[in-house]
């Protein structure tokens, strides 16, 4: 049971809370959301508290994160897009820190649950839709009608555009969720090999070297994936926000 690769995604109630028949318990997932937010917030707050004109290492990290996301957003959505900067930065930091914390043994990975990534994706798409209609009114629907399309083809193209728009939250959330889930399952499976092989005696211990090496390599890969998925999520957020800002392609 201890090597069950799915077990790490179990949610356990820590403080049961039930309102109107719905379960709002404070769970291990909730705790790690709090830890994620506290870690990211504290890091950004404490490293910049000296407001050094010449930044130290940690302050550089905060500044680099800031400028990284800022240039990402500016490239994708232009200077108008900077109004969404706190939003995009929050999403990036939340996903990044949640992914990175999930790499610690025994830690729960917040982003390995589809409901969390789907909620974040819906938050992005909801922002795009609400802001798009608020800013451009019905002009926002021009998003679905690319310029210079022959009239005969227009219905088909519009249908494709609508479908692609609707699939965005799904692809956005499933990408992050599946990457985290698959990575952690793979890690757990290989790490499980190490323990079950070494239980077999000397020969088993010698044989366990291979899955151990694999686990180490996978950990490095997961570190990359943790960053990459946060980046991809943020970049796609920027591009979708660009649609809300400039609906006519």
């Amino acid at each position: 049971m201890a090597t069950d690769p799915i077990h790490q995604f179990q949610i356990s109630r820590w403080i049961p809370i039930e309102v109107g028949g719905l379960d709002f318990s404070f769970t291990n997932a909730s705790a790690f959301m709090v830890i994620t937010v506290a870690t990211a917030g504290a890091f950004l707050y404490l490293t910049t508290s000296s407001r050094g004109l010449v930044p130290g290492r940690l302050q550089s990290i905060s500044e680099m994160a800031y400028e990284f996301v800022a240039s990402m957003l500016r490239d994708a959505a232009g200077n108008h897009g900077m109004r969404f900067f706190p939003f995009v930065f929050s999403i990036f930091m939340f996903v990044l820190v949640a992914n990175l914390l999930g790499l610690f043994p025994y830690f729960f990975t917040v982003t390995s649950h589809i409901i969390v990534t789907f909620a974040l994706a819906m938050l992005v798409i909801g922002t795009v839709i609400v802001y798009g209609f608020w800013k451009h009114g019905l002009g926002f629907l021009k998003l679905f009608v690319p310029q210079g399309v022959p009239v005969a083809l227009a219905p088909l193209v519009v249908a494709i555009e609508v479908v692609s728009f609707l699939s965005r939250p799904i692809s956005l959330s499933v990408r992050l969720f599946a990457n985290m889930l698959a990575g952690h399952i793979t890690l757990k499976v290989f790490a499980g090999f190490v323990t079950s092989l070494s239980a077999l005696g000397i020969a088993g211990v010698a044989g366990a070297v291979l899955p151990l090496a694999m686990t180490v390599a996978l950990t490095a890969l997961e570190l990359l994936v943790a960053f990459l998925q946060a980046y991809v999520f943020a970049v796609l957020t920027c591009m979708y926000l660009n649609d809300a800002l400039h609906p006519s392609h």
Binding site: I11, D23, F24, S25, T27, A29, H113, V116, A119, L120
Partner: peptide, 12 residues
Amino acid sequence: TFPSQLLWLAIT
């Protein structure tokens, strides 16, 4: 688990 996850995600 969804209501709890959504609520705590929204709060945090």
